[in-house]
Design a protein around this nucleic acid. Sequence first.
DNA 1: GACGGCTAGTTGTCTAGACAAGTGCCGGGG
DNA 2: CCCCGGCACTTGTCTAGACAACTAGCCGTC
Lengths: 260, 260
Amino acid sequence: MDSLNLDRQSAVPLYFQIQQQLLQQIRSGRLKPGKPLPSEEFISRRLRISRMTARQALKSLCSEGVAYSRRGKGTFVAETKLEKNFRQVLSFSEEMEARGTRPHSKVISFQVVSANQEVAEALDLAPGEKLIQLRRVRMADSSPMGVECTCLPLRLCPDLLEKFDPRTSLYRTLAEVYEIHIVQADEVVEAGLASPEEARLLQISKASPVFLFTRTSHVESGQAVEYVKSTFRGDRYKIANRLRRQSDGNSSGGVQWTQG
Amino acid sequence: MDSLNLDRQSAVPLYFQIQQQLLQQIRSGRLKPGKPLPSEEFISRRLRISRMTARQALKSLCSEGVAYSRRGKGTFVAETKLEKNFRQVLSFSEEMEARGTRPHSKVISFQVVSANQEVAEALDLAPGEKLIQLRRVRMADSSPMGVECTCLPLRLCPDLLEKFDPRTSLYRTLAEVYEIHIVQADEVVEAGLASPEEARLLQISKASPVFLFTRTSHVESGQAVEYVKSTFRGDRYKIANRLRRQSDGNSSGGVQWTQG
DNA sequence: GACGGCTAGTTGTCTAGACAAGTGCCGGGG
DNA sequence: CCCCGGCACTTGTCTAGACAACTAGCCGTC
């Protein structure tokens, strides 16, 4: 009834199969917060695998914040109060879907422009180098949520204007057509007030509070390939985060820990 | 000269000793971003330990975002462009120190109050249960940066009013005096406008843009022990984050990846 | 009843291997 | 010149153990 089983022919690692099955039991509510997960010993005997492999499955759940371990006691399902928002910061599409609304975009402009100093600096471009600039209003159902302006060096994707359908995923197009695989981004968030143009596009009153996001995305070599500035409605948008503290003082989460 | 060495008599785990030494080499600049760390094989031969132990040291650096691994290539020091801000979201003390300014606080009130519904719900309290409430203005040098209101159930720390010096670290006091070890927090960030009182305390004009933070902190069992609401100046405060994308779909950072 | 020791169960750490799979380079054959 | 195979190196996964350290309950002694 524990419905743990393995496909040893599969290319999927054993620990990952176990991790996914446990995760599913947690998500489905069969394993409730605070309740113990099967022990490393139990899993390894039951599935006839090494204890280290079972351990790897449990530890991966811990590193995601889904579970926690206590020496001498066991591994337990973590509380899941913020589950719905957890790790969804800025993930526009996912957040909209979690709310049951369909995300889509309205393209304001999609064109080639010359880089201003700010973008040139962020993307390490030659002065006046050409950019692809894509400005969109991000919508949830028919309600505008934010304005987003994405800049890419033209030389990296010279025919993007023809090859990219702005209603699809930009990142997927970059990966499939140009072999540009973004693996990391640095992002800064500020609180500000909507400009008159933003207020009009977002259908809010002037000087409403907004989030200002500035993101620089990089490929594996560290080269910056994308610069995005966006403005999101403060009344409709929240950032949710889970912070974690490690015993030594280094955080495994996306943010460092606050000292009280 | 690689200055890796072990104290086998120490109670400190071997992998942790290695991790700390590598971390120190990275922080000191002897290992630069993009450069490879010693391979698992090299470390295990050099220190005469098992490869799995060397691996554990490297993996722990990866899980902290200090390094990253590429199958077939090696483990490398992560880029640190945003190092100063990276993972410092809401870490008031550290951010101030990074700017070269000294953080301190001005206590507005430190008293016992009855829980309102919002706090009672967050901390799972009985109706009307007593709280310790600490309101502070967070300052950088002599400039106010934010207002913070911290609430703790009185029954968990009955004599905190006497035992805690508000100029010291609250978390350290909770750990040392009451054995309350906070290991996780869920936080929500909103963009808003300063209220008249906040504007006065922060010395900004009314209706200036501000960040609103709401944090619920938990001990390992999942029990909520702290509820914090704070308001920080939008003109002085930024949130910096590094997002990382993994091939699997499991994020090691604190936030999930945005689809372009 | 209080206390202490024993024991079973659990996670933490560590060993000494194994094979798979991806990367980068070099050299040989076309 | 270009391509491809082989080789060295690396990380990813897995095995089958070992001992240490901690927890919780049980039981007998004081």
